[in-house]
Simulated scan of single mutants.
Amino acid sequence: MRRLRIAGRLIALIGWLLLCIPAYILSRLVTRRRIVPRIFLGGVARMMGVRIATTGELEPRAILLANHLSWLDIPIVAACTGSAFVGHDGIAQSKFLKWLAEMNDTVFIARTRRQTVTRQIEQVREALDNSHVLTLFPEGTTSDGKDLLPLKSSLLSAIDPAPEGVAVQPVFLDFGTAAQEIAWVGDEPGLDNFFKVLGRHGPLDITVHFLPPLTGESLAGRKTIAAATRRALERAMGQ
């Protein structure tokens, strides 16, 4: 049955992608906003059996700082926010993944080349102009869902300072008891995790907690943003 679920979902994903690509091309002829990629990612979440509940309120224009467990985090966040994303430049090494990511206004952070920060800041503003919401995973990698990894303030350089009129809002992705089932940790190959999620049985309930935006001294710089975000996420996790 697991193999049948994997095969069925894989066929559905490929079919969904082939349907969305021409829709994306046509939509670009009439609007700057990249609506189809968000629709595609929301469909991916539904195909994986994800059922999303939310708490709190999403700010109209926001940079979201979320904990990170799995590749599923991206379609989940996109499904309930319409967000674009900030990703590390390692993703851009795959031409196919880079092509898909760029359709959704992804900003690639070059973690080892500080001279690119100015350009990254420009890209953040461009992505916010198009989508109004941009999500960054400041842990820089995925965790096991039980504990929060150190937040890398270097990844926040492109939002220091945050654009005027844009909230910086922590978000807690709560997978409950299913966290360890889908978490991508350790030396597990990405493809293995992908198929593990594809083969999972039953619905996957997740709660997306939109926490209060950071204010005042919490926004003084990337290190204070990282520290304040960590405190907010740890409180939400009950730590």
Rank of each mutant, 00 (worst) to 15 (best):
T31Q: 15
L204D: 01
M237L: 15
E122M: 04
S157T: 07
A220T: 10
R111T: 00
R222C: 02
I109G: 01
D73V: 07
V185A: 12
K98T: 07
A167I: 04
R28M: 12
V77I: 15
G221M: 03
A226W: 00
F108H: 05
T229A: 07
P161D: 07
D105M: 10
R33Y: 04
L148I: 13
I11H: 03
I76G: 13
G82R: 13
G140V: 09
L69T: 12
S218K: 12
G190D: 10
F195W: 14
L10T: 15
G140P: 09
R113K: 05
K146I: 03
N193Y: 06
A101H: 04
P212C: 10
T177M: 07
L156P: 06
L17P: 01
P203N: 12
I109Y: 04
P75L: 10
M48E: 10
W71H: 11
S94Y: 08
P212T: 10
E188A: 14
L149C: 03
A179M: 10
P161N: 10
P212S: 05
L191P: 03
V133S: 10
L134N: 04
I225H: 07
R113Y: 00
Q120N: 03
H201Q: 00
H209G: 12
G216W: 00
L211M: 05
I39N: 04
T207S: 03
H209P: 13
A79S: 15
P150G: 03
V166R: 01
S131V: 01
N104P: 03
V86W: 04
A101Q: 05
V185Q: 13
L134C: 07
P75K: 08
S218N: 15
T106L: 12
R46Q: 15
V36D: 11
Y24I: 07
L233F: 06
E181M: 12
L13A: 14
S131T: 08
W184E: 15
A183E: 09
V86H: 09
T142A: 10
F40G: 06
N130V: 06
R235T: 13
W71G: 05
M103N: 13
W184I: 13
R5V: 08
R38A: 15
A167P: 05
E126M: 03
L233D: 14
Q93D: 14
I35S: 11
L198F: 11
R33I: 03
V171L: 14
R222P: 04
L29M: 14
V124F: 02
I91M: 15
I91L: 15
S153D: 00
R2Q: 00
K146T: 11
F194I: 02
I21H: 06
R3Q: 05
F40H: 10
T215M: 02
D89A: 08
I206A: 12
K146V: 04
N67M: 11
M1S: 13
R9D: 12
N130K: 14
L155C: 02
R200V: 02
Q239V: 06
F40I: 02
H88Y: 02
G238V: 12
R200W: 01
V50Q: 06
A226M: 00
A167K: 15
A179L: 09
L148N: 07
L10N: 01
I225C: 04
L219C: 09
L18Q: 08
R5Y: 05
R28W: 12
L211D: 05
V208S: 10
K146A: 14
F175K: 08
L148K: 09
A227H: 06
I76T: 13
F194M: 09
A23H: 04
L97W: 14
E139W: 04
